[in-house]
């Protein structure tokens, strides 16, 4: 019987001993695992050279709203790397875990990289999809996740809406009618980005999958045999990927220096090159010039410039019975 306890004691020792070494916990969105699995070793090496300290970086991934919830409930993440700035705002509003001006602490709105929305179409682009307007052509069906639950789909909705605003100008009724038609074309609303991918690839639903440009490229790479093609529409939304260190947690974990250095490292040329290799758009001038041909030119607009603050966007568009709900039910009536 005693022999049984020895391995158990070893496991306990192993599980608890990790608390001693310097660690960083990065809480991130769902699909960023491969990205950070690639970037973390670079930073560990960089930090080792700079300070002589060996760091371990742990990752936690999930829908970014769920991740924010967990941090408010006590998950001691040192840094967050999210795909929605509202989810970082919540950390200030509900938990006061970091100051309100977190956006100003790092360059480019604290967003080291960005992306935009792109269309994934089937082999040969049989429906001839090039622009947002093409998505409502006769017989075209779409797949993207539910804007209620997915940040990814919120950007899709805002990109389509923003494009319609440009096309119809002051004709608000025309804008709303087109967006309702656009929403009525969705074959299935999955709860998250990867679920929508499954619907499009495995269940073969829809003619167009709309998701982040980076993810579109990723899917094409994952399924080389399907001959899927990427289309980046000419007008588009700028999707920021905001990062922040959590002041309260880094103070408690004694990792303030490391957390800041980690996030600043994301702006370095080395990291920006890696980010670009995952098809994220970056700000570093030299890297940008080198990878320019990877990223089709598209006119990007900021959500804040077109729709006002994110808080306003949430109230006017995504709250219960707000614009999105109204247009969804109008679209259903049409069908």
């Amino acid at each position: 019987m005693r022999r049984l306890w020895i391995p158990l004691a070893l496991v306990v020792a192993q599980l608890t001993s990790t608390v001693q070494a310097k660690e960083l916990l990065n809480s991130s969105y769902d699909i960023a695992r491969e990205l950070f699995a690639d970037i973390n070793p670079l930073f560990v090496e960089h930090w080792q050279q700079q300070s002589g300290e060996t760091l371990t970086i742990n990752q936690s991934h999930g829908g970014s709203s769920r991740q924010a919830q967990a941090i408010i409930q006590g998950l001691r993440a040192d840094v967050v790397t999210f795909n929605q700035s509202t989810d970082i705002d919540i950390l200030h509003q509900r938990g006061n875990l970091l100051p309100e001006n977190w956006r100003e602490r790092l360059p480019n709105n604290a967003s080291p990289y960005y992306s935009t929305m792109a269309f994934l179409v089937r082999k040969g682009n049989p429906k001839g999809i090039e622009t947002w307007e093409d998505l409502t052509k006769e017989g075209v069906t779409l797949v993207f996740p539910n804007p209620k639950t997915s940040g990814n789909a919120r950007y899709t909705y805002l990109a389509a809406y923003g494009d319609a605003l440009q096309r119809f100008g002051d004709d608000r009724a025309g804008v709303r009618a087109w967006v309702a038609e656009f929403l009525s074309r969705v074959a299935v609303f999955d709860t998250g980005g990867r679920g929508a991918t499954t619907s499009f690839i495995d269940r073969n639903l829809g003619d167009v999958l709309i998701t982040f440009e980076s993810e579109v490229n990723n899917i094409i790479k994952q399924y080389p045999d399907l001959g899927l093609e990427r289309v980046v529409p000419p007008t588009n939304v700028l999707a920021e990927f905001p990062v922040a260190w959590i002041d309260r947690n880094v103070a408690r974990n004694g990792t303030e220096q490391q957390a800041k250095a980690y996030l600043e490292f994301l702006y370095s040329e080395q990291a920006q090159r890696r980010l670009a290799s995952f098809y994220y758009r970056v700000h570093h001038e030299a890297v940008k010039a080198d990878v320019a041909d990877q990223f089709p030119a598209t006119e990007l607009f900021h959500v804040e410039d077109v729709f006002g603050s994110w808080e306003q966007v949430n109230i006017e568009h995504f709250a219960n019975n707000a614009e999105l709900d109204k247009l969804l039910s109008e679209g259903r009536r049409r069908r």
């Binding site: 990790t18 742990n58 990752q59 936690s60 991934h61 967990a70």
Partner: peptide, 9 residues
């Protein structure tokens, strides 16, 4: 619900 899904932890 209570894990936080930290890989390796």
């Amino acid at each position: 619900v209570v894990s936080g899904t930290i890989r390796g932890q």
